[in-house]
Amino acid sequence: MSDFLVIDNASVSFPGRGRAPANLAVDGVSLTLAKGEILGLVGESGCGKSTLSRAIMQLQPLTSGRIILEGQDLSLLDGRQLRAARLNFQMVFQDPYASLNPRLTIFSTLAEAIQARTGKLSGPACWTAVEKLLERVGLDPTAALKYPHEFSGGQRQRIAIARALGPEPRLLIADEPVSALDVSIQSQIINLLLKLSRELQLTMLFVSHDLSVVRYLADRTAVMHRGKIVELGETEALMAAPQHEYSKALLAAAPALRMRH
């Protein structure tokens, strides 16, 4: 079976406040990801791309539709099964300042992520595993003893990526992982994500509002607008010749792209 992740007609609606109508944040989205593929999901804030990624992560219940990972319908799982299944899909969040528990050392954070998969490890085994993770994301093992506040944004994002890799997931959802970072750090993180996805054969959903990043990273790109996927295609082709009006507007607006001319 080639379809690794299938999102089948997924909708999420939030009840309106008072008499306001319900807000359909994700409106009948269907997408499939092949194993090892990087799919870029582009759209502006409020288009539903974050809600969709949270729904795939099972952090937000679907109103209707299905999410099938490796043939397993995630919405049919009970609490215990879901908790076990969660290890297969992990997320890197946007804000590296909010995504790490400020009161845990990096060691504790990573050890927790590793042991979620392996169960309780002995001290030395756990240290070895943490060290390996830190190395993988390009950090010094001494980082393990520190707290999140002792790191810069880029380093925190590396730690957050390490945590996401801790339970050895097969699907990684990256929700705007570089948009809170400085330009010079952004490219470090993008390179890291690309390297990891190749080394570990990760399937990745890369959510961003930044077309230049998606263009560089994604095999295929989906453009999301008002809860719907309005265009989907090979990244290069889509960027070269967008079909939908909204994709055209989005591409035309990106200032970084116009600098080339």
Binding site: L59, R86, M91, Q94, R103, E112
Partner: peptide, 24 residues
């Protein structure tokens, strides 16, 4: 987000409460 990350690791509600929330 760090609480959502903890949920994503499949931790139980009790662990999330006592390890990630109450200390904060």
């Amino acid at each position: 987000e760090f609480v959502e990350a903890a949920r994503s690791l499949g931790l139980s509600t009790a662990v999330i409460l006592f390890r990630h929330i109450i200390p904060n």
